[in-house]
């Protein structure tokens, strides 16, 4: 696999964010079409107890 430094950007599909989201959502063949998932995004849950204890 190519890593980021050697990636040929011109070969990447240029799709706007909104279009990308819409396309996938409207595709009836999408297996997850009716998956109603709501997940909290909370990076601070990853804090290390050890960091807190040190000071």
């Amino acid at each position: 696999m190519k890593n980021d430094d050697t990636r040929d950007e011109s070969a990447e599909p240029k799709v706007s964010q909104e279009n990308a989201a819409k396309e996938a959502n409207e595709d009836p063949k999408q297996p997850q079409r009716y998956e109603f998932k709501i997940a909290p995004v909370d990076p601070k849950n990853n804090f290390d107890f050890e960091d807190v204890a040190d000071k």
């Binding site: 999408q30 997850q32 079409r33 009716y34 998956e35 109603f36 998932k37 709501i38 997940a39 909290p40």
Partner: peptide
Amino acid sequence: VQCLSPAA
């Protein structure tokens, strides 16, 4: 911050 699936 919440992340929603397309259906949600």
